[in-house]
Design a binder for these strands. Structure first.
Length: 264
DNA sequence: AAGATGAACAACCGCTCCCGT
DNA sequence: TACGGGAGCGGTTGTTCATCT
């Protein structure tokens, strides 16, 4: 390949890193710190480009890199921050300590885009954003609550949420106050079947939360702080009305949602 | 048991921006 | 001010591993 002629001339390695290469890089940085990556690569005795060394260090070898599954809290943050900033992976990663932009990008592509594909809609479409906002994120919140109560990350998302909020649902034609929300009116009747429960009584959030933007620019799905929160009563009522009218999510889309448990 | 398929993740590529000269 | 090198970012590709048939 023409493109790699220079690298081949300089006998530069490509592809997966070996244990020996990792050790060389880690030891060099431990002794000399990070520096100019090209010269670092040379001085460390690595036959790699500076770029490759930087990527390996930042995404894999750095001691504070978190490994393992993306937690529901992190998923929720990613959904929210992506809705706010789009594909600004590094910016999003800044708010998920220990996670790299690459990891978040991969998560988005493999999980989120897959779900959009399953639902047969574009990941950037209003439809899919509604599914995220009204189905996926509530489910995540429910899971987080069930697992361990309200986490610091989640309280940040819920910064604008009321400390206690009951949601009106319709079940078999009866209005009742409940924490159960998000289900679909059946095609034959206007009743909600209970699907998920959340938002019942989140603790009052702290004034500031680490790991969250100090100044939000455009408002995301939850839209803190300046946009109306999903968790706010007004947000629910707006959603309810649209849902009741049947124009929130199309039947076809709903069938796809119903058929899958992907948002868990 | 073996091949096919898909998901998850690691790594690379090209572009842009920034900064020093 | 223009230019060149380094660094960072987002998109894309390649590889590995697990699951399915």
């Amino acid at each position: 390949m023409e493109v790699h002629a220079d690298e081949e001339m300089m006998d530069l390695r490509r592809g997966p890193w070996t244990v020996e290469e990792d050790l060389l890089l880690v030891n060099y940085i431990a002794n000399h710190g990070e520096g100019r990556w090209n010269s670092l690569a040379r001085h460390a005795g690595l036959k790699r480009t500076g770029k490759s060394c930087r990527l390996r260090w930042l995404n894999y070898l750095r001691p504070d890199v978190r490994r393992g599954n993306i937690t529901p809290e992190e998923q929720l943050l990613i959904l929210e921050l992506h809705s706010r900033w789009g594909n600004r992976w590094s910016k999003i990663a800044q708010h998920l300590p220990g996670r790299t932009d690459n990891e978040i990008k991969n998560y988005w592509r493999t999980r989120v885009q897959k779900h959009a594909k399953q639902l047969k809609c574009d990941v950037n479409s209003k439809q899919f954003k509604d599914v995220m906002k009204y189905l996926w994120m509530p489910r995540l919140i429910e899971r987080i609550k069930a697992a361990s109560g309200v986490s610091p990350a989640i309280t940040g998302v819920l910064q604008n949420s009321p400390s206690s909020h009951h949601h009106l649902i319709v079940n078999d034609g009866l209005l009742e106050s409940s924490s159960t929300v998000v289900s679909r009116p059946s095609s034959e009747s206007s009743s909600f079947g209970a699907v998920s429960s959340f938002s019942e009584s989140f603790e009052a959030p702290p004034a500031t939360v680490s790991g969250l933007p100090e100044s939000a620019d455009s408002g995301g799905l939850c839209g803190w702080p300046e946009e109306q929160s999903l968790m706010s009563p007004a947000g629910f009522m707006e959603f309810d009305q649209a849902w009741w009218n049947g124009d929130m999510i199309s039947d076809g889309l709903w069938n796809n949602v119903e058929d899958s448990s992907w948002f868990l």
